[in-house]
């Protein structure tokens, strides 16, 4: 089918990548990929490259590999996103909610009709989950890395129940583009923008958060998660996870880039005042919750953020990983 559509002959494995990354043009023999529109691409592909993405994707998705902890965490953060989004939608006045999911969402596909952006998709873990909830998902790599996008697209293409046609009511597309570029292209169009475990890896978090929030449409929602800059977080995420237990490669985390909830909140608020903001809106912190790993049960757990032990130098529930949801409320001009 796709052989014919793209006019190329390749191994059967290759067709899978093409299904998902049809909007990426891959030049033979190089790793440079550029964005092209779906259906207008005249692609050709090197099967050695596909094998490389497949291998990278296999590594990324190994249940007990270096991203195993992230895999364990995903259902918990997904439940958080689901709950926060549905309660946000329910709280909106009927007129502004009319373009969003219906007031009584289908429990099997509650994000139907929502346009969702996953900024910094990694192997596509969160993006696939969001698409399964019925959303129309755009996923981008943090550094607009085409290799990363191809790797994530490869894995998603392995699930025949995911839809990659952007015209379908729910779909998934991976794009090698920065948040800034995407903002120039689309403007504020997303009902929900998620950027999880990403902000601690970017160089200018304040600007990054600003761009993410700009991509949210008025009365939409943004959800960020990151690691708090506390001694406990340093002990667990760097000393234990990287150096002693070798769960993740040494150098994965940079302690100085960790962000406290107060800092994150100040970045969120700063956009309201900045010149980037094109639409007048108010950013309201809807919730801040902690995410804790329970080693004995090998499970992550959501902490409601109410348990704090300030005074001992501890931040309680928000001591390590935490997640924040921000409502972007339209302000009448």
């Amino acid at each position: 089918m796709f052989h014919a559509a793209f006019g190329i002959a390749c191994q059967p494995k290759v067709t899978a990548v093409l299904r998902a990354s049809a909007n990426i043009r891959i030049k033979p023999g190089t790793l440079s990929l550029s964005i092209a529109r779906m259906y207008s691409a005249t692609s050709s592909i090197d099967s050695a490259e596909v094998a490389k993405f497949a291998a990278a994707s296999n590594d990324w998705w190994k249940p007990n590999g270096q991203f195993g902890m992230l895999h364990q965490m995903n259902p918990v953060r997904m439940k958080y996103i689901r709950t926060q989004t549905l309660s946000h939608l329910a709280s909106l006045p009927v007129s502004s909610a009319s373009t969003l999911a219906s007031v009584q969402p289908d429990p099997a596909a509650p994000f139907k009709g929502l346009r969702v952006l996953d900024v910094g998709c990694g192997g596509g873990l969160l993006s696939e989950s969001l698409a399964r909830l019925g959303a129309s998902v755009t996923a981008t790599a943090i550094d607009a890395s085409p290799e990363n996008v191809a790797m994530a697209a490869y894995h998603a293409s392995l699930d025949p129940m995911l839809n990659f046609d952007p015209k379908a009511p729910f779909s998934l597309s991976f794009r090698a583009i920065t948040a800034e570029e995407l903002l120039r292209e689309t403007g504020s169009v997303f009902d929900l923008v998620c950027s999880l475990e990403v902000v601690e890896h970017v160089n200018n978090p304040k600007e990054f958060i600003g761009n993410c929030l700009e991509l949210v449409k008025p009365n939409g929602l943004a959800i960020f998660s990151t690691i708090n800059r506390t001694p406990t977080a340093r002990l667990f995420t760097i000393l234990l996870a990287e150096n002693i237990l070798k769960w993740v490669p040494v150098g994965t985390h940079n302690f100085d880039k960790y962000i406290t909830p107060t800092e994150l909140e100040s970045f969120v608020k700063a956009v309201e005042l900045s010149s980037v903001a094109t639409i007048k809106s108010k950013h309201e912190i809807a919730d801040v919750s902690g995410l804790a790993y329970r080693p004995l049960e090998n499970k992550w757990e959501l902490l409601d953020g109410k348990n704090s032990m300030f005074g001992f130098g501890f931040a309680g529930d928000l001591e390590m990983n935490y997640v924040m949801s921000v409502r972007k409320l339209a302000v009448a001009a």
């Binding site: 995903n74 259902p75 997904m78 439940k79 689901r82 696939e128 989950s129 399964r132 909830l133």
Partner: peptide, 8 residues
């Protein structure tokens, strides 16, 4: 629970 969290 898997469906609720969008898991495979």
């Amino acid at each position: 629970e898997g469906v609720i969290s969008g898991s495979d």
